[in-house]
Amino acid sequence: MLIYFLNSILFVLGLYCLIAKKHLVKKIIGMTIMDYAINLFIILLGYKKDGIPPILLPDMDINTFLQQSVDPIPQALVLTSIVIGLSTLALMVAISLRLYEKYKTFDMSEIRRLHG
């Protein structure tokens, strides 16, 4: 249970960084930490101590296999979610570079031409 608690602390840290920091790059880092906290959480869902790979070979007993093997679905989900996180990260970095070009600052509190 402790590990889930630590994991949620990681998530909240990311959220705090995203909300409280004004620097664009720090916001991006906070976003990424949040994303990875979720990925870690999904991996933990499928974790089993001393687990075996989920490949059913002909000479295996199905019941012991089910007890011992790790859950493969969370790993597949996390791979997809990492790819999505990577593409979001690339887009965020690209946009923040362009923002720097236009406003000459990374401070979000000075980037406020839109309001109302």
């Binding site: 995203l18 664009l24 916001k27 976003m31 994303d35 979001t88 887009l91 965020m92 946009i95 923040s96 362009r98 923002l99 236009k102 406003y103 980037i111 406020r112 031409r113 839109l114």
Partner: peptide
Amino acid sequence: AEELEASFKYLILGG
């Protein structure tokens, strides 16, 4: 400038 700013806001909240 405005479009990038709007897009960044949208991106953060959407993310």
